[in-house]
Amino acid sequence: MKRPHFFTLAAAALLVNGILLPVPAVGVETTAQEAASYEMMAVPPPPAPGNCGAPYTLKTSGAEAQVRECRKRSGDIRVDGNVMDTDNDGQCAQVYATYNVSTATDYSPRACPKGTRIYFTFPWRAGSDAFIYLREFDV
């Protein structure tokens, strides 16, 4: 059985002297020695209230997703995008998100077999930041 791959996208940024600086622009977040090869974190700036952020692409060896965060003027956030299975490996691809305020976890439909692309829009959730994951898993 293959080990599942988890890739994350977390929205956060620093505003320093009027310049938006991502911290870090792209980095690897490790919690254990073996985690380094299975989990990565990018830190893009969050969208302004009432707007959607730029789309981001997440990739694993057998999956790809384009995702973005949108914020209401009230500050609630949601994630939308698509996910595609890119490898004939018997696994499905899926995006899921957690939030900095809401305790909910939202899951896209599974994308499989190879070549299947699924579009999704998660519900509005309390918070200003979404943590977005792309995973592959055995069915």
Rank of each mutant, 00 (worst) to 15 (best):
N51S: 12
N51C: 09
C52Y: 04
C52L: 14
G53P: 03
G53H: 06
A54Q: 12
A54V: 12
A54R: 08
P55L: 01
P55Q: 06
Y56T: 13
Y56H: 15
Y56R: 15
T57Y: 00
T57P: 00
L58C: 06
L58G: 07
K59D: 03
S61W: 13
G62M: 11
G62A: 13
E64W: 08
E64Q: 15
E64L: 15
E64N: 11
A65K: 06
A65E: 02
A65V: 05
Q66P: 14
Q66R: 15
Q66D: 15
V67N: 03
V67K: 06
V67Y: 08
R68V: 05
R68I: 09
E69N: 12
E69G: 14
C70G: 12
C70D: 09
C70S: 12
C70K: 10
R71M: 03
R71Y: 00
R71C: 02
R71I: 03
R71Q: 05
K72R: 13
R73T: 08
R73W: 09
R73Q: 08
R73K: 03
R73V: 03
S74V: 06
G75L: 06
G75A: 03
G75N: 07
D76E: 11
D76R: 08
D76I: 04
R78Q: 05
R78T: 04
V79E: 01
D80E: 11
D80I: 10
G81F: 10
N82G: 04
N82Y: 07
N82L: 04
V83W: 05
V83K: 04
V83Q: 02
M84Y: 01
T86Y: 00
D87M: 14
D87L: 14
N88E: 09
N88Y: 09
D89Q: 00
D89G: 04
D89S: 02
G90K: 04
Q91Y: 13
C92Q: 06
A93M: 03
A93S: 07
A93G: 00
A93N: 01
Q94G: 05
Q94W: 05
V95L: 09
V95R: 00
V95Q: 00
V95G: 03
Y96P: 05
Y96D: 02
Y96V: 00
A97G: 07
A97P: 02
T98H: 13
Y99R: 08
Y99K: 09
Y99G: 12
N100T: 07
N100W: 11
N100G: 09
N100Y: 10
N100V: 05
